[in-house]
Structure formats: C-alpha cells, structure tokens
C-alpha cells in the first residue's frame, strides 16, 4: 500500500501539482476544488431547499435539468481531488478526516441519486403540484451529507485540532 502511494507521489502529475511554482499547479487545482464544491453543494442546497418548501413558486419538475450541473461540479472535484490526493497520498490516507470526507462525498452522491429516483422520477405527481412521500426526508439527508463533507473536508487541514478534539 505504502509503495503504491509513494509511487503515486512520484508521478509527473503529482510532482507538478506539489512542487511546481506555476500558478497552474497546486493553487489552481485547489481553487478548482473550491469552485466544484460551490457548484455541487450550492445547486444541491437550492434544489433541497425548494423540496423542503422554501421558494414554493419554483416548479419542481424542471429542477431535474440542474442535475447535470451538479455532476459537472462533481467531475471538476473528482479530477482536482485526485490531483491533490496524488500530491500527498501517504499523508492523506493517514488523515482520518480525509477518509470521513470521502465517505460523506459518496453518501452525498447517493443522496442525489435518491432524489432522482424517489422524487424526480415521479413526473406525474410533480406536474400535479404535489410532492412524493418522504421528499423532505431525502432533501434533508442530502443537505446533511454535503454539509458533513464540507466540515470533514475542512478539518483535513487541522489534524492536530481533530486529534485533541477526539482526545487522542
């Protein structure tokens, strides 16, 4: 495992991201990661807020058109995230908050798909102006997953704080 991670860190891409003094290296990859986050979490929050009953004038059915946008943000972050991970593979794999973040991101994606299958696939119900059962549950779940992804993601930068918080 360690060997593979060390190999990853030694690849041209990882070395460029980590060590190049170019503006396009670490800083731009990091910025893209923040932009992708804003797109995924922002759009997801907007959709979920509507499903929870805020801004009730917004028709629900056409919100499905925003799903590709969420996946665009997700793709930006998957690619930039792989780059950031490769640059510090050994360090990240030992970071408990990084593992937690990956879990919450995956749960976040599952929550988006749950919205698709449990809410947006019921076109007839949505056209009639009502919402399928448990819509609010799925919307809440999605907001919570992505909020936890942000919280654990930010905490990856504070391993000492996390250790003292957990009493380690």
């Amino acid at each position: 495992m360690t060997e593979m991670l060390t190999w990853l860190e030694g690849t041209t891409i990882a070395t460029f991201v980590r060590e190049s003094s170019s503006l396009l290296a670490y800083t731009t990859v990091l910025s893209l990661h923040a932009m992708g986050l804003a797109i995924v979490v922002g759009i997801n929050t907007a959709i979920s807020l509507r499903l929870l009953g805020f801004a009730p004038g917004i028709p629900v059915a056409p919100l499905i058109k925003l799903f590709p946008l969420m996946y665009l943000g997700f793709t930006i972050n998957a690619i930039s995230g792989v780059g950031l991970f490769m640059a510090r593979a050994n360090e990240m794999i030992g970071n408990s908050m990084f593992i937690a973040k990956i879990v919450f991101v995956l749960l976040g994606v599952v929550s988006i798909e749950l919205l698709r299958t449990n809410v947006f696939s019921h076109g007839v119900v949505l056209e009639s102006g009502s919402l399928p059962p448990r819509t609010k549950l799925f919307a809440t779940l999605s907001i919570v997953c992505w909020a936890l992804a942000i919280i654990s993601g930010r905490l990856t930068s504070y391993p000492y704080f996390v250790a003292s918080l957990l009493g380690l």
Partner: peptide, 23 residues
C-alpha cells in the same frame, strides 16, 4: 460560498439560458 453560488449563480445561469422551464 456554496449558498451564494447555489442561489445567485443559479439565477445567473438561468438568465444565460441554462435550466429553461424554471421561471
């Protein structure tokens, strides 16, 4: 940041023609 992009950015995108069907 996410709240700002998800709401203001969403309105901007709709004005630019993304997500037609949303008033």
């Amino acid at each position: 940041m996410s709240l700002l992009i998800g709401t203001v950015g969403l309105v901007d995108l709709r004005i630019l023609g993304v997500g037609k069907g949303l008033p």
